[in-house]
Simulated scan of single mutants.
Amino acid sequence: MNEAKLSQLYLHDTAFQNLMQKRIHNVLLIASPYDAFMMEEDGRVEEQLYLEYTALNLSSPPRVKRTSDYAGAYETLKSKQYDLIIAMPGIDIGETFREAKNIKQMYPEIPFVVLTPFSKEVSRRLANEDFSGVDYVFSWLGNVDLLLAIIKLMEDKMNSDNDILEVGIQTILLVEDSVRFYSSVLPYLYKFLLKQSLIFSTEALNEHEQMLRMRGRPKVILARTYEEAMTLYRKYQNKILGVVTDISFSRNGEKDKLAGVKLAKEIKAADP
């Protein structure tokens, strides 16, 4: 047996301290008083996030600053550094996407997420909007778990290259173009992964190591088109734990009712 193969037999410790170097600490929420009231009917968003974080033994819950309009948002962004912007559209949905584009030009490093109630009318109007300034659109279903999932998805995206390619953390590829569906499934997926990580962390010798081990959970990466899915698969191919895919989504710029089947065949051909 040569030396290269022999080295593969040794167990290597995961450098947990090198994981999740980029975190979301400050969130700017742009929402009208009415939308904010509906979101906070079960308590303040920041308090709900804190309860979710403590229940899952997660450290450093983010702080949430709310502003009711974009004029206030620009002033707030000038005075403090934010790691994530979440906007809830008002009556004029187009305003949100126009302002998102402007903010993205000024602060390209800050992820911009649109959080909107689900309805057929909203879906129809979204189809005509310019998404160039928006990273993701989510459907608000009245569950604070979605906010936790959004934050974790953004953190996974921010840390994916280092944590997956350098440290070797595994990842789950979710392929779905339905805003309503991935807004529903991501909270459950993250809750499951975080609870499993919590169980795994009990093997640590002390509380500090427990928190470090919580960082070692599998990442979740979201793709919304065939091309995006294949790009992510090829990039992280050796660390893909599994692929969860829809059947029908965009392929070559058009809706393909068998895109998921074709994706599965291509991935299986590359990694049977």
Rank of each mutant, 00 (worst) to 15 (best):
L165C: 04
S197F: 06
Y82A: 02
H25I: 09
S119V: 11
Q81S: 06
V179M: 05
Y190H: 05
S250H: 12
N159K: 12
E3M: 14
K235S: 03
H208E: 14
P89A: 03
K255I: 15
K268P: 00
L232N: 04
Y34R: 13
V134Q: 02
D83C: 05
D246W: 09
E121G: 02
K257F: 14
Y10L: 12
M38S: 10
L193S: 04
G142I: 08
E209P: 00
G90D: 08
M88Q: 13
S7W: 12
M1Y: 12
Q105L: 14
E254K: 07
G242W: 07
A15V: 13
I103C: 04
P89L: 04
A264C: 06
L232S: 11
H12L: 14
I151G: 05
L58P: 01
A204Q: 07
D246L: 06
N18P: 03
G216Q: 05
S139K: 03
V185I: 15
T14H: 03
V137P: 01
S178V: 11
T67L: 10
R44S: 14
Y50T: 14
T171Y: 04
K262I: 09
F131K: 02
K101L: 14
K120N: 11
A31S: 13
A36M: 12
S68E: 15
L11D: 06
F192W: 13
I30Q: 11
A4F: 14
E109Q: 15
F112V: 11
D92E: 04
P117T: 14
E3I: 15
K265G: 03
S123M: 15
L241V: 01
T245P: 04
Q48N: 11
R215C: 04
P187H: 09
R180F: 13
N238R: 09
L232Q: 07
Y53I: 05
P108S: 07
D156T: 06
N57G: 02
L222V: 02
E41Y: 13
P111W: 07
G142H: 07
F97M: 03
